[in-house]
Structures are given as structure tokens and as C-alpha cells.
Nucleic acid binder design. Structure first.
Length: 373
RNA sequence: GGAGGGGUAGCGAAGUGGCUAAACGCGGCUGACUGUAAAUCAGCUCCCAACGGGUUCGGCAGUUCGAAUCUGCCCCCCUCCA
């Protein structure tokens, strides 16, 4: 529990420039974390991740538990060796699958029964199980097992669920033994201010290594989303990292940074890349469109990624339409690099006390719609 | 010259008297995507002034209340035998 050190370097209003040190890794924050659910950021390997200047990446407890199984990863010498990634790794607890696989699970006080999406078998995960699996996986930062609450949910449901998540957090904390692995608690409470407050305060009392804000961006409007974020952030300590889970739209990221969030992850950049949608400095591009058939310019003139340095839109369009795997790789590289570059710029701006201007400039210039991509 | 098989929407391919403007796949066009059951998913794809109408299943002519489906002739393609 003392493996993680957070250093707050500078504040520009509420935006924070900081550094996380863990197991010899140094992570500049704010940071964007690519998602690699199954011990791989889909289509990228360690060289690609280095090239885009990724630092933390995610793995997923539920998925790795089902396949290949945590024992395999443990015997491989941990997830870093298993996937050959020499950078910090964070694991999500399986709490998101309580939400995303809702139709195939059952929640009880003790934990969650899942009907495996792979073979239909019945599997049970308690908060202690989640922690033990994450310890075997060997991530640098683990998450408490929680329930990501759907939207909309009633006050009573949010309250019961949030309180159960708090009990699970405590159980997980007590079960956690690895000193070289940090453990974060996750604030829940739905859209309700008093529930978010209670959740945050109770977690802080338990003294986690960092705090996550969960259950946002699950269908609520932006205004509600940002309110939920503030309602949690208000009670979190300055000397610990804050992580808003599952956020990847540009406006969401910049807004969260403005409010004092340090870490983000999201499948959005990689997923939409695989589906042919790219975030660029000139707005959203759907690479499959006919208008790019003879467009021999790079995807984004301002981008320094491997894709933009070496290939044209016409070629990328061709690869995409021909269903060639290289399209998935190159486009994923671009979208990830795009977001990481924005966050790098944010760090610089905070250091120079001009973050608000930076945010405004980015949002004006890129011309994304209200979705933020 | 003889014997078989076949011609269905951009392509491939079902259908062999009404429930068929015609399954399904591909291709094409739209749209969605935020702690990854997602290289996925949804909608559209004969024509039109379209909650209705107009033309279709190689061509023409028939049978029938009704034909892509049955009959005749013609055109084209494939296989085998001479």
C-alpha cells in the first residue's frame, strides 16, 4: 500500500499537474490510458505503445480471469512479462462488467454471479476474489470491485448499490496483500449529490492509494455528467491521484482535467478507429467516405503519429474498405496518439497557468460536436 | 450435328402457380459507438411527385381469376458426345 507516490507539482485553478511513481515507473499526470482489456491494446504491440508515448495501460480482471486465467499470467511472471509491456499497468476490477454484462449476472451482498459469455458456465466473483485475481495478474494499480450503476436508476437503488460497493471496497482493502500494487477505491452514487458525497467521504476514510470516479458517462447528459464528477471530486484529498473511469471524448477529458482529475481511460479512441472514425485537428473524419478516395494527404497534418507521418487518407481508406488489419492498427495508433497529445498539451498548459485558454482553444479549433469527438 | 444443364435486382444465389418487389450473402450508402461479449451493431439499397403508385425475374407470344414459377418459339451461356 505504500508502493504508489503522488506528487502534485502545480495547480492552475483546479487543474493539476502531477506525477505518480510506482514500481520504478514515473507517470506524468494528467494522463490518458489506452484500454487493453485482454492483455492487449487491440492491434498494437509494445513498440506501438512506446511510439505513441503511452504510459499506463489497462487490463481487465473479468476478461483475464475467464481467459487465459490468472494462473497463466501469474506463471508467466505477471502481466508485464506475459504481454511484454514494460510500462505501468492498471487493472479494472470487473465492476464494469457488472454493468455491461448486466443481463448475464446476479448481484448479491457476497458478490456477483456471472454466466460466462464464453461458455455459459456459472462463475462467482466476490470483492476478495477480484483483488486476489488482480494480485495474481500483477498489475501496478488495482481497482476495488464495484458496481457501475446504470442510468437512470432510482435514488433507492443508487443508495443501496453505492453502500454495497463501499462494503465491497472495505472487504477488498482488507483482502489486499501485495505491497507492490496500489489499490484505488471507486466513488459511486449515481446522479445524486448526497450519495456521491457519502461515497467519496467513506472511501477517503478507508485511505486508498487513489480514488476513482465511476458510473459516469453511462447515458446521462453532459451537464449531469459533469455535476456527478464535481460531487465526487469535492471530497477527494489533494495528495492522492483521481481517476475518472471510462472517459475518452475530448470535451469530457478537458472538462475533467479542469476540475482536477488526473487519469482517464477509454475504449472510445480504439473502438471508433476500428470502425473508421478518426479524431483529427480538423474535426471528425470517417475514412471510408468517398471524398477521400483520391485524397493523398495525411489524416491529420498536425499529427506526429506513425500513421500520419507515413500514409495518406486514400491509402487508409483503401485498407479500411478492404478490411485489412493494418487499417485497425494505423487508425488506432492515430486516435490514441491524438488524445495523448491533447493531454500532453494540457500538462504543458497547466504548468504555464493557461489551461482554461488551452481547453477553449482546443474545443473551438477541433470543431467536434457535443459528443466530443 | 446430338444429349444434358442453365439464364432471377450491381455481383453471387434462393424461390418452381397466389402469403413474392422477390429469402440470404457480398458490394454500396446512412447512422451509432465513453472503466471493450464491439475488425462490431442498426437502417437503407428496382423506379417515383412515394404511410401511396409504377415497372420487374433472357426475349416474344400464350394458358390462367392470378405466372419468376406452366406452354410454344427465339436468343445467349456451360458440360459431354460426334
Amino acid at each position: 500500500m505504500k508502493s504508489l507516490r503522488y506528487k502534485l507539482i502545480h495547480k492552475d485553478h483546479d487543474a493539476r499537474l502531477g506525477q505518480i511513481e510506482i514500481n520504478g515507473y514515473v507517470i506524468d499526470t494528467p494522463c490518458f490510458m489506452p484500454v487493453g482489456t485482454q492483455a492487449t491494446v487491440k492491434f498494437l504491440d509494445y513498440r506501438d505503445l512506446k511510439e505513441i508515448n503511452a504510459s499506463l495501460i489497462l487490463g481487465n480482471t473479468y476478461h483475464l480471469w475467464l481467459r487465459p486465467g490468472e494462473d497463466v499470467i501469474e506463471q508467466a511472471g505477471g502481466i508485464h512479462k506475459f504481454m511484454n509491456y514494460d510500462g505501468p499497468i492498471l487493472t479494472d476490477s470487473g465492476g464494469f462488467q457488472v454493468f455491461s454484462l448486466a443481463e448475464r449476472r446476479n448481484i448479491s451482498e457476497d458478490g456477483v454471479t456471472f454466466k460466462s459469455h464464453l461458455d455459459g458456465s456459472t462463475l462467482f466473483m466476490s470483492p476478495e476474489d477480484s483483488i486476489h485475481i488482480q494480485e495474481k495478474i500483477g498489475s501496478d494499480i488495482a481497482m476495488s470491485f464495484d458496481e457501475c450503476i446504470p442510468y437512470p436508476s432510482s435514488y433507492d437503488y443508487c443508495k443501496d448499490s453505492m453502500e454495497r460497493t463501499l462494503r465491497w471496497a472495505k472487504r477488498g482493502l482488507e483482502a489486499h496483500t501485495r505491497e507492490d500494487q496500489a489499490l484505488f477505491g471507486i466513488v459511486q452514487g449515481g446522479i445524486y449529490t448526497d450519495l456521491r458525497e457519502y461515497s467519496a467521504k467513506e472511501l477517503v476514510k478507508m485511505d486508498f492509494d487513489g480514488y476513482s470516479i465511476g458510473g459516469t458517462s453511462v447515458g446521462e447528459d453532459k451537464q449531469t455528467h459533469y455535476k456527478m464528477l464535481e460531487d465526487a471530486l469535492r471530497y477527494l484529498p489533494e495528495d492522492k491521484p483521481r481517476y475518472e473511469m471510462g472517459i475518452g471524448a475530448v470535451n469530457d477529458i478537458l472538462t475533467a482535467i479542469e476540475k482536477g482529475v488526473d487519469m482517464f481511460d477509454c475504449v472510445l479512441p480504439t473502438r471508433i478507429a476500428r470502425h473508421g472514425t478518426l479524431m483529427t485537428s480538423e474535426g471528425r473524419i470517417e475514412i471510408k467516405k468517398q471524398m477521400y478516395k483520391y485524397d493523398f494527404s495525411p489524416l491529420d497534418k498536425e499529427c506526429d503519429c506513425e500513421c500520419c507521418r507515413n500514409y495518406t487518407k486514400a491509402y487508409l481508406r483503401h485498407l479500411f474498405r478492404a478490411n485489412e488489419g493494418l487499417a485497425n492498427r494505423l487508425l488506432s495508433i492515430h486516435n490514441l496518439r491524438f488524445l495523448i497529445r491533447i493531454v500532453e498539451g494540457a500538462r504543458e498548459a497547466i504548468r504555464e497557468d493557461r489551461f482554461l485558454q488551452y481547453k477553449e482553444d482546443i474545443l473551438n479549433k477541433y470543431g467536434f460536436d457535443e459528443r466530443g469527438f
